Simulated scan of single mutants.
Amino acid sequence: MFALLIEQVLNGLQLGVMLFMIAAGLTLVFGVMGVLNLAHGALYMVGAFAAAFIAAETGSVVLGILVAMPVAALAGLLIERLVIARLYARDHLDQVLATFGIVLFANEMMRILFGPRPLFLNVPDFAAGTLEILPGVPYPVWRLVIILVGLVVAGGLALLIERSRLGMLIRAGAQNRRMVAALGVDIGRLYAVLFALGGLLAGLAGAVAGPVLAVQVGMGEPVLILAFVVIVIGGIGSVRGAFTGALVVGLADTLGRAYLPELARAVLPPAAADQIGAALASMTIYLLMALVLAIRPKGVFGGSD
C-alpha cells in the first residue's frame, strides 16, 4: 500500500510539472495580452510530433526533444504574427473562434503529414528501466527525468520573471499592459516573445510526454482543459500560481483516480463502486476549482506576480 502511494504521488508530480510547462505560457499570454488562446494545446501536439519525427529519422530521442522546442516556439510565433496580432482589439469570442480554427487546421495538418495512426517514442537509453527510489519501490527513470526537467524549467522561469528586464515587463504587463505601452515599450515585440516562449514550453512538454503517451492527432485538447483549470486555480497571469495549481491538479487527478474507486467499494457493490468512483475521480479537479473560486475568485496567486 505504501509503495502504491509513493508511486501515485510521483505520477501526480510528473503530471503536475508537465501541466506547469503548458500552463506557464498560457497564463502569461492570457494575463499579459488578454488573449484567450485555444491553440496553445496545438503547440503541445506540434512539439510531440516534431520530437517523434526527428527521433525516427536520427534514432536520438534527445535530439528530437531539442529540435521540438524551437519548432514549437516558431509555430507559436507564426500564430501570433499571422492571426493573433489581428485580434488584440477584438473581444474574447473572436479570439476563441480564430484559435479554435487554428486547432482544427493543426490537427488536419498533422494528420496529412504523419497519418492518422499514433506515433511512439522510445525512452532514451540512459533513462530506460526503473530506479528503486525506496526499498521495494521501483519507479521508471524517464518519469523521474520529466519531474527533474519540470523543476528546472520552473526554476529558470522564476529567475527570468523575477531577475530580468523581460520578466519585469511581463510582470508589469500582467498588472497594466496599457501603462507598459504608454512607457514606450514595444508591445508587439513583447507579445511575440511571450507567444514564442509559451510555444517553446508547450513543445517541451509534448516532447518529453512522447515516450509516456502516444503521439497522436488531437492530443492537445484534453491537456489544454487541464491547463485552463490550473491557471484558474493558480491565478491568471501568475507563474507561481501556475506552478502551485499544476502540482495540486496533478496530485488531485492522479490520487483521485487511484483511490476514489477503492473508497467507494467500502460502501457500494464493486460494479457500482467502480462506476461511481471513476465518475467522482474525473470530477475532482473541477470541484477543487469551484472551491478555490468560491474562496478566492482571482485564484490563489491572482495578480501577485
Rank of each mutant, 00 (worst) to 15 (best):
A98L: 07
T99F: 13
F100A: 14
I102P: 15
V103Q: 06
N107D: 15
N107V: 00
M110C: 13
M110G: 09
R117V: 03
P118I: 00
F120Q: 03
N122H: 11
V123N: 11
P124C: 03
F126N: 07
L131C: 06
E132G: 08
L134G: 04
P135H: 05
G136A: 04
V137I: 05
P138Q: 03
P138R: 01
Y139S: 10
P140V: 01
R143D: 10
R143N: 07
I146F: 06
L148D: 02
L151Y: 11
L151M: 14
V152R: 01
V152G: 08
V152I: 14
G156D: 05
L157K: 04
L157W: 09
L157V: 15
E162M: 03
E162Y: 12
R163K: 15
S164I: 00
L166C: 05
L166Y: 04
M168R: 13
L169Y: 11
I170G: 11
I170D: 06
R171W: 13
A172V: 01
G173I: 04
A174C: 12
A174W: 04
Q175D: 15
Q175A: 14
R178T: 14
R178G: 15
M179C: 10
A181C: 00
A181W: 04
G184C: 05
G184T: 00
V185C: 11
V185P: 14
V185K: 04
D186W: 01
D186A: 11
D186T: 00
I187F: 10
I187H: 10
I187S: 12
G188Y: 07
G188A: 11
R189N: 09
L190V: 13
L190H: 07
L190W: 11
Y191F: 13
Y191R: 03
A192I: 02
A192W: 06
A192R: 14
V193N: 02
V193Y: 14
L194Q: 09
F195C: 09
F195I: 01
L200E: 06
G203C: 05
G203V: 02
G206V: 08
G206F: 04
V208R: 00
V212D: 10
V212C: 03
V212G: 04
L213V: 07
L213S: 09
A214F: 12
A214H: 08
V215D: 02
V215Q: 01
V217N: 12
V217I: 13
V217F: 08
G218H: 02
M219F: 06
G220T: 02
E221Q: 14
P222S: 05
P222H: 01
P222D: 01
L224W: 10
L226G: 02
A227M: 02
A227S: 11
F228H: 06
V229N: 01
